[in-house]
């Protein structure tokens, strides 16, 4: 029995909690991608860099706050800076839409042209982020590091294994849950949210109902700014901020959005967790879990790791292929917000 509990604690500590936090971050990222796909009708290659941009702005504000002595008690200061980061990122995205994307909408450009346009935006945003904050690893988490440390947990429960809960992990899951709840309430209950769904479903008919496409698009960019900045800041708090890592998040985020069914917000969330859990579980060395469950003589040699951590990208990709083979439109039917 104690062996089982110990195994469970190891599982929670090294698999479940990290995957839950990572999944929340991916889900928020994938929601942004799926919204753009549903309403602007293209996959935004600049999304990873939008996350990096939002995080960069938030970090700069956090530094300023820390400089003048503002803090958020045991929570990271970045959380206080987040709303400002969202606003500035929102303005930047609206500006980008004004200066870049709107022209193509007026031309009724083919979506694939918009994909290429988003590559250009990606280059520029990537350049801006590197220009302003550089390419180094930046750790901007402050406040209390742990809600409960492994040692405290061991003393509390008397178990051999410890469960450490980092503040950022709990924060990530809670913030993501709030953001998702707000988004769903907005899309399903408010007039503007419903008009966004209508626009995604049938653009021409939305126009004939008097829905202003420019307004729908503007609101979409603002929501995307909020989601991307939140996702980016949470990821940065949980791990650290590095411009290149954020660019690389594009693949798991796209995979999550597609696994769930592109254009479907619920799918994006489920997809985020599917990708995160499979990535963590397949690359985790299970030896330590097994050591509490199996008698010594039956323990296998080696780490009992299915695939080396180096191939975590491969996992999201293989999940993607498997899902698409069996459900061509993703787990949830895609292509409508």
């Amino acid at each position: 029995m104690v062996g089982f509990l110990n195994a469970l604690v190891v599982f929670l500590n090294f698999v479940f909690v990290p995957a839950l936090a990572y999944g929340s971050q991916l889900a928020l990222g994938a929601l942004g991608v799926t919204l753009i796909y549903g309403i602007l009708r293209f996959s935004n290659f600049a999304h990873g860099d939008t996350m990096a941009f939002g995080t960069m702005v938030t970090i700069l504000i956090t530094w300023w706050m820390q400089g003048v002595g503002i803090s958020f008690g045991f929570l990271p200061t970045a959380l206080l800076a987040l709303p400002f980061g969202i606003v500035i990122t929102g303005l930047a995205l609206l500006g980008t839409d004004r200066g870049v994307y709107r022209f193509y909408r007026q031309q009724k450009a083919d979506p694939v042209i918009l994909v290429i346009v988003s590559m250009g935006v990606m280059f520029i945003m990537n350049g801006v982020v590197r220009f302003v904050i550089g390419v180094d690893d930046i750790n901007f988490a402050d406040g209390t590091r742990f809600i409960i440390t492994a040692r405290e947990f061991q003393e509390l429960t008397g178990l051999q294994e410890g469960l450490a809960l980092r503040t950022t992990q709990v924060l990530t899951v809670v913030t993501a849950a709030i953001a998702v709840a707000l988004l769903f309430w907005f899309l399903n209950k408010t007039r503007t949210g419903k008009s966004m769904r209508a626009f995604s479903d049938n653009e021409a008919l939305a126009l004939l109902s008097g829905i202003n496409p420019e307004r729908v698009v503007a609101v979409t960019w603002l929501i995307v700014a909020a989601l991307a900045t939140t996702a980016g800041v949470l990821y940065g708090l949980d791990k650290s901020f590095k411009a290149f890592t954020y660019f690389q998040l594009l693949l798991p985020i796209f995979a999550a959005a597609i696994v769930g069914g592109l254009g479907n917000p619920l799918g994006a969330i489920v997809g985020g967790f599917v990708v995160a859990f499979s990535e963590v579980m397949v690359t985790y060395p299970w030896r330590r879990v097994l050591s509490h469950l199996l008698p010594e003589e039956r323990m296998p040699d080696g780490l009992v790791q299915l695939i080396s951590t180096d191939y975590k990208f491969a996992v999201s990709f293989i999940i993607l292929i498997i899902v698409l083979l069996f459900r061509p439109t993703g787990l949830f039917k895609g292509k409508s917000v």
Binding site: Y37, G38, R41, F42, S43, Y104, Q107, K108, A109, D110, P111, V112, I113, V115, S200, D201, N202, E203, A204, A206, L207, P213, F254, I258, L262, G263, K335, S336
Partner: peptide, 21 residues
Amino acid sequence: YQDGRGNKDASITNRAGMGQI
């Protein structure tokens, strides 16, 4: 701008419900 070269890649473009107006 409307020349998509026949691309209909479902992982990057969403043509369902696109307006014709």
